[in-house]
Every structure is written in structure tokens, then in C-alpha cells.
Design a protein around this nucleic acid. Structure first.
Length: 508
RNA sequence: GGCGCUUUCAUCUAACGGUUAGGAUACAAGAUUCUCAAUCUUGGCAUACGGGUUCGAUUCCCGUAGGCGCUACCA
């Protein structure tokens, strides 16, 4: 499929390498991915490192690794290649300079010498100061100064910025795919800095427009925080004369805190006990560690599914969807407009659903390292069997260990509540009798043992619950777990009797 | 402060003028069972407020209030 101008659909995800990838960024990337796939288009990975001061080593690699884990694949860009490169903005200085000069020559931009300190002083002095048509002639720039002065300042090495000349009193309309027409007056826009001579790099706005144009991006799907500057971007496309191929915009609602006010931040994760980053992040400067979904044992499919539904729905009641299903169902028009609270409780539910959805063999492979860490070496078949018995009662693979360790090792201690409820009165006596009965059985398989034991209990006139739970406590250490004959079947006759008789002595 | 976006159960959301306002999570109860889960059933819970337009507003318009974002030589 193509866009309105008949072009192949091309979208991009363009993070700044200033730290770990925020979970909101993951969702933005996901929506771009779904959109690109659905339209048979391209997804570009661009690095927007125009702020040299905020560059963080390792961030780019982290972001790539995160998408790899999540299963979001790019078609071109940094580390993927492509014919529109380079895809790292810091490597495109010459390109930007050329376009800055074009704007300068066309009189759509001008050079300004005001230092950050001077501007700060101005803002302190004049409330609501804005660098625009009403103030620019009072500032130090190529509009207010003679050309000879400007040239002299540059020649003597003064730093400067290039500002975009904005004509006041013009209504600028952005046609947003999610929100419809959004109109603002150009008078509320300031003469944005497009370029800094100090590091010879553009700011976001200029780089963004030039790159999207050059890379033939057709749709810009990004967070709502960009909506206020979208009219500025439209003005830039006009200034360059690129309005006919200007991409279409879609501004996504923000991810909000689970409780309280404001958008989801790094702090919330620490405070409420859930990650806000896909992968664990070790800050190279502060040595601080932020938790990640991968390390916290979430399945990438669950994270993706949960995120997809935060601000979008397929139009019917389905919630569990594969990435491919989402690709065919995705629709920008079905995106909601209001911010979504990040309710991680539901993510836990998704994780549980995906554990249930995956085969025992798949879960067993994920569980194997956990077992090994606990000193358990078992065959894949045994592990799969154990997984099948207990996976419905866990939300995370890591919880499997606590739920089924008794399948691999005898209990070393007994849960007090369980003892109080089930290990009393006749329990030691009946359990001992049951052991003798079981020992005498020729066929120990669960299928044969269950009816035999039930008949024995009936014959003796015992209460089924009391006998079974007493046995359960001796084998498991608590009144939890799967069907008791599944457990005896798994651990075997010898171990069953050994545990039961040992417990009778230990608990006497 | 200015500008913009936004507003349906606690939370994520459906209903693109006519429904007993639906689903999911969470919560509660029940069923099942040797226990804990899972599963199934059931239950409570919402159209922010005030005006219009209309035969009829969750839905369209205006206002108010709340929420969010932007307002950098950050993205």
C-alpha cells in the first residue's frame, strides 16, 4: 500500500541514545511496526543523537537488544543498513548544514548571537518572554544588525545559532490521523533554534524534517508530547517547499502513572515494584540499576500484547493476540485519544495467559536454568511433566520452582497452617496404615493406585479429606499442589513411602 | 500564566444519535475438588458537570471543572 502521494509506506522509530528505552517508546515502536507490516512498508531505525551533551554510551546497543528480545524487527537503519543512510544523525552534519544554508539564503531563517546566559537573563527580566516577531528586532541577530557586524562576529569565532523565522498571525493546521484537524496560531510559536554552531549540529526539529524528507517517510507515528510542535514542523516543510510529500501525522496518547498524576516515569517503577524498561539497565555514570521486564521474568509476547492494548483495540472483545494477528488488525483510527494508565496488574495476567498458551516443552526450556540453579538435573521429559502439573498456578516462570520443588526434593520443613489443619488426631496413625497399604500394592501407577486407595478408605470408614491431606502434607510439606496421585506417580513408590514415614517420625 | 490535547466502571476499553451502556483485569460469592490453583457461574461498579441541537444524546456543538502535554542552543 502507498500513501496519499502514491508512495510506498515508510515509517520510523527514532530514539535518542540518552538512556534505556522507556516502555512508552516501546509502544510507539510497536505501533510503527504494526503499521509498516500491515501496509507492506518499511520500518526505519534512526538514532537522533543531535544533543551531544546528553549522549549515553551503551544506550544504542541497549535499544537494539531490547527490540531483539521483544521481537520487533526493523527493515533498515542503524545496524540494519539501507540506502538512505547514514542513519545516525551525528553522521549527517554536512547534510543538515546544506539545508540550513538553504533556509538562510531564502530568508526563512536567520543567525542569532544571543548567548544562553543572555536569553536566561531576558526570561528572568520579562515574564513570558518569547523570541519571536515581537521581540527579535531587540535581540542580537542578523535581522537587527548590519551584515558587516554579523560577518565580523562570525569571523572572530563567535558562536551562534540559526533560528527559524516565523511569520505571526497565521493559522497552521495539522491533520492528525488520530485527532483530526489541530489548528494553532503561528504567533504562539517562537523562532525555534534549528542549528547550533557550537557543535555544528541541528536541533531535533530541523534534523527530523530533513531526515524524514530525505528518507521518504510517509507517516510519522509518535507520542503526544510532539503535538504542540507539529505545526512548527508543518511550517518547516512549507519553508523547504516539501509540503506535497509531507508525511501524515499520528500522535499517540501518553502512558500515565498507575496511580496519582502525571506520565509514567522511571521513579514509578521503583516505587510500585514493576519495571518501566524492557531490559535491565546499568547506568554507566551513576552505577544505578533499573529493573527490566526481561530480567523480571516477563515473556516478551505478554509485554507486547499488553502494550498494544494500551491505547488501541481491535474493535472486538479479543485480547490475546499474536504479533501477526495484531498486524492484520491494527488501525490508527481505533487508537484512543486520552492517556492510558499503566496498570501492570493486567500485564501479570497476560503473562499468566502466555504461560498457559505455551507448550509444556517451551516452558520447560525456560524453567530448566532455574532448576539447575537450584541444583536439580532432570531429563526434559521429567521437567515437562512437572511443568504440566503446576504451570496453571503461576504467573511467572520463576515461580515454578516454589510451586513444584517438592517434585524433585523431599520437604525439609512443614507449613504450620497446613499441619494445624490436617496433621492432627488420627493423622499419624492413618497415614502409617496407608503407607502399609500402599506398600502392598502391586501396581503403583496413579491410575491403579487411586481407586485402590479410595476403596481402602471407604472400607476403613475414614474421611477421604483427612487421609489424603495428611498424606499430602508429608509429601509436599503443605496443603498445596496438584492432584495427590499425580504427585505420587511423579516421585515414585519408594520416595512416597520414604517421605511419608520420615514425616510421621519427624512430626511425632 | 499562555497554547494545545483530552474526559464511559478502581483500571484498559466497546457502543462511529435509538443497547437492560458490552467485554477484560482487579475485587467478592458460589460450583468443582483430597489441598492450593486453574476452570465455570454469579455479583457489585461508569457515561465529570451545566447548557444547547434533536422526536431521541455516551455519541454533535458551547461553556465549566478535572487530567495530560508543550512552552530550552532536550528529544
Amino acid at each position: 500500500m502507498t500513501d496519499n502521494a502514491g508512495r510506498r509506506v515508510r515509517v520510523r522509530f527514532a530514539p535518542s541514545p540518552t538512556g534505556p528505552l522507556h516502555i512508552g517508546g516501546v509502544r510507539t515502536a510497536l505501533y510503527n511496526y504494526l503499521f509498516a507490516r500491515q501496509h507492506g512498508g518499511d520500518l526505519i531505525f534512526r538514532i537522533e543523537d543531535t544533543d551531544s551533551g546528553r549522549f549515553v554510551p551503551g544506550a544504542e546497543e541497549y535499544i537494539l537488544e531490547a527490540f531483539d528480545w521483544l521481537g520487533i524487527k526493523f527493515d533498515e537503519g542503524v545496524s540494519f543498513g539501507g540506502k538512505y543512510g547514514p542513519y545516525r544523525q551525528s553522521e549527517r552534519r554536512d547534510i543538515y548544514r546544506k539545508y540550513v544554508d538553504m533556509l538562510l539564503e531564502a530568508g526563512r531563517a536567520y543567525i542569532a548571537f544571543d548567548t544562553p546566559q543572555e536569553l536566561e537573563a531576558k526570561r528572568a527580566e520579562i515574564p513570558n518572554f518569547q523570541y519571536d516577531a515581537s521581540t527579535r528586532m531587540g535581540m542580537r541577530n542578523s535581522l537587527s544588525m548590519p551584515k558587516s557586524d554579523v560577518d565580523a562576529l562570525i569571523a572572530t569565532g563567535n558562536q551562534y545559532v540559526v533560528r527559524f523565522l516565523i511569520e505571526p498571525d497565521q493559522d497552521v493546521t495539522v491533520n492528525d490521523l488520530i485527532r483530526g484537524k489541530v489548528t494553532i496560531s503561528s504567533s504562539v510559536l517562537d523562532d525555534k533554534v534549528l542549528y547550533k554552531s557550537a557543535d555544528q549540529l541541528p536541533t531535533y526539529h530541523l534534523a527530523n524534517i530533513v531526515d524524514d524528507h530525505l528518507m521518504e517517510v510517509t507517516h510519522v507515528i509518535r507520542g503526544e508530547e510532539w503535538l504542540p510542535s507539529a505545526p512548527l514542523h508543518v511550517l518547516l516543510y512549507r519553508a523547504f517547499g516539501w509540503e506535497d510529500t509531507m508525511p501524515q501525522f499520528a500522535h499517540l496518547p501518553l502512558l500515565l502513572k498507575p496511580e496519582g498524576n502525571g506520565k509514567l516515569s522511571k521513579r514509578d517503577g521503583d516505587r510500585l515494584g514493576f519495571p518501566v524498561f524492557p531490559l535491565e539497565w546499568h547506568d554507566p555514570k551513576t552505577a544505578e540499576i533499573s529493573s527490566g521486564y526481561r530480567e523480571k521474568d516477563y515473556l516478551p509476547e505478554a509485554v507486547i500484547n499488553f502494550l498494544a492494548l494500551l491505547g488501541w483495540n481491535p474493535g472486538d472483545d479479543r485480547e490475546i493476540m499474536s504479533l501477526d494477528e495484531m498486524v492484520s488488525l491494527f488501525n490508527l483510527e481505533k487508537c484512543s485519544k486520552a492517556g492510558a494508565r499503566f496498570n501492570y496488574q493486567k500485564l501479570v495476567w497476560f503473562n499468566h495467559e502466555y504461560i498457559m498458551l505455551k507448550s509444556d516443552a517451551e516452558i520447560a526450556q525456560l524453567f530448566k536454568p532455574v532448576l539447575e540453579r537450584n541444583g536439580i538435573q532432570e531429563s526434559d521429559e521429567r521437567i515437562e511433566k512437572a511443568v504440566s502439573l503446576v504451570k496453571n498456578r503461576v504467573n511467572f516462570v520463576g515461580e515454578l520452582w516454589d510451586s513444584c520443588k517438592y517434585l524433585f526434593q523431599a520437604p525439609t520443613e512443614f507449613d504450620e497452617k497446613s499441619l494445624k489443619k490436617w496433621w492432627k488426631d488420627e493423622a499419624p496413625k492413618t497415614t502409617a496404615e496407608l503407607c502399609d497399604f500402599i506398600e502392598a500394592q502391586p501396581d503403583f501407577s496413579g491410575q491403579a493406585l487411586e481407586p485402590a486407595v479410595m476403596a481402602w478408605i471407604a472400607e476403613k470408614g475414614y474421611a477421604t479429606g483427612k487421609v489424603m491431606n495428611a498424606l499430602r502434607v508429608t509429601l509436599v510439606g503443605a496443603a498445596v499442589g496438584p492432584h495427590i496421585f499425580e504427585i505420587t506417580d511423579f516421585i515414585g513408590k519408594e520416595e512416597t513411602l520414604r517421605r511419608a514415614r520420615k514425616a510421621i517420625q519427624a512430626l511425632a
